[in-house]
Computed example of a mutant assay.
Amino acid sequence: MNIIFRLITLAGILAIFTNCNNSKKEHTQPSQFKWETYRGVNVACDISEKDVKDLAASGANLMRFSTAVCTYMEMEAPFAYKESAFQKLDSVLNWGEQYGVAVLIDPHRYPGSEHKWTMLGSDPFFKDFKYHDILINFWKKLANQCAKRGDVVAGYDLLNEPEIPVDMEKNTPQDINLLYKKLTKAIREVDSMHTIVYALPRIYNEETKVMQGYHKGIEVLEIPDDNNICLETHTYIPVPFTHQNIWEEGDYVAYPTKIDGILWDKAQLEKEQKELIAFSEKHPNIPVFVGEFSSPRWTGQDGMRFLTDVIDIAEKHNWSWAYHAFRENQVWDPEMNITNRNDSTRIANAPRWELLKSYFKKNAK
Rank of each mutant, 00 (worst) to 15 (best):
K182W: 07
T257H: 06
W321E: 10
K271Y: 13
M211D: 08
T257Q: 10
E315V: 05
W139E: 09
T9W: 10
L276R: 13
V310Y: 12
P165C: 01
L269F: 10
I16W: 09
I223V: 14
K88W: 09
A85S: 15
S358C: 05
I218H: 12
Q32R: 11
K116M: 11
I347Y: 06
I313V: 11
L307S: 11
H115C: 08
Y156F: 15
D128S: 00
T184C: 07
Q32H: 08
P162D: 08
T37I: 06
A85R: 09
A80Y: 03
D225I: 05
H215E: 15
G40H: 08
H324W: 15
W139M: 06
F241P: 04
W35I: 10
I338C: 11
E189M: 09
V239W: 13
W332S: 09
D175Q: 02
L10R: 05
N42L: 10
D343S: 04
N2A: 01
R305L: 14
R297N: 12
C230P: 14
N22S: 01
E315T: 03
E74V: 00
H194F: 08
A147E: 14
H283N: 14
V52T: 07
M63G: 03
L14G: 06
E249T: 06
F79H: 08
L355I: 09
L200F: 14
P224F: 04
Y72F: 15
T18I: 11
A254F: 03
K34V: 14
V92N: 10
P351S: 13
K82G: 00
T195N: 14
K127I: 00
L355T: 09
M75N: 03
D90S: 14
E36L: 07
I187Q: 12
D157H: 15
E207H: 03
L183S: 05
Y180C: 05
H317T: 11
D312F: 05
E207L: 01
F293Y: 15
